[in-house]
């Protein structure tokens, strides 16, 4: 880590815990509820946002002195949208299978408030390298929460992880594993309200461990 000064390291580590975009800044909640019904989708979304936010932050940071302040939000939106669409088109041409997995997320990435939030709050006022680190850090912090939520929702809702059955076979009449003992999947976990409750529990745990985070 000789490349990173102490301040730079903080840019990456802060959003992972004490300044997490989802649990502290309350950004990106919408996608955290929408696509965390299974772990794989959470991981794909986390990686996509990492990519887009890292590059987008650099682009906005480079343009920060020429963007007219009156239309800066529109400019930011155009940058994200153009970036995402170009990536989508390139994937469609050269990695078709992958693009089909990702195409569902394109709309969600463009409208993700974390991306706009970081452009607005950080990239417009800082240099490209620091903006890049900030983007990576925040996307990672977002991704961690997404993956935690996806893990619990898929495990408790479908009894699988990444599509593999880990709790046994739930089909009536031929149950194995936990299901043979009378366990049942909680279908409610698959619906968005439970994602909010899981995030709520994470926020609770986080704030009870670090009292400084509790607002008045």
């Amino acid at each position: 880590m000789g490349l990173l000064s102490k301040k730079d390291t903080k840019l990456i580590t802060d959003p992972l815990a004490d300044n997490n975009p989802i649990t502290i800044q309350v950004l990106g909640i919408c996608s955290a509820l929408a696509i965390t019904a299974e772990l794989k989708a959470s991981i794909v979304m986390a990686v996509s946002v990492l990519f887009v936010l890292g590059i987008g932050n650099v682009v906005i940071s480079l343009l920060r002195n020429v963007i007219p302040s009156k239309i800066r939000i529109i400019v930011q939106l155009v940058v994200v949208a153009a970036l995402v669409i170009i990536v989508d088109q390139v994937l469609k041409a050269f990695a078709y299978e992958l693009s089909k997995t990702l195409s569902v997320f394109v709309g969600l990435i463009i409208t993700n408030c974390i991306i706009m939030g970081r452009f607005e709050a950080f990239a417009l006022g800082n240099g490209p390298w620091r903006s890049f680190l900030d983007g990576i850090g925040n996307a990672a912090g977002y991704g961690v929460i997404l993956i935690i939520v996806g893990f619990f929702r898929e495990l408790l809702g479908s009894g699988t992880l990444l599509g593999f059955p880990v709790l046994g076979n739930p089909i009536p009449g031929e149950q194995t594993g936990l299901y043979a003992l009378g366990y049942e999947n909680n279908g409610f976990m698959l619906l968005s309200p439970m994602a909010l409750i899981v995030i709520g529990i994470i926020i609770w745990i986080q704030r009870s461990r670090n009292k400084d985070l509790i607002e008045d």
Partner: peptide, 28 residues
């Protein structure tokens, strides 16, 4: 300046997207 920026941005981004889309269209 704002209007000029908006016009240039639309033209540049539009051209970029159009170029990407049309050059990749055959393989898509």
């Amino acid at each position: 300046y704002t209007i000029l920026f908006a016009v240039v941005m639309v033209v540049v981004v539009g051209a970029l997207l159009a170029f990407t889309a049309s050059s990749l269209k055959p393989s898509i």
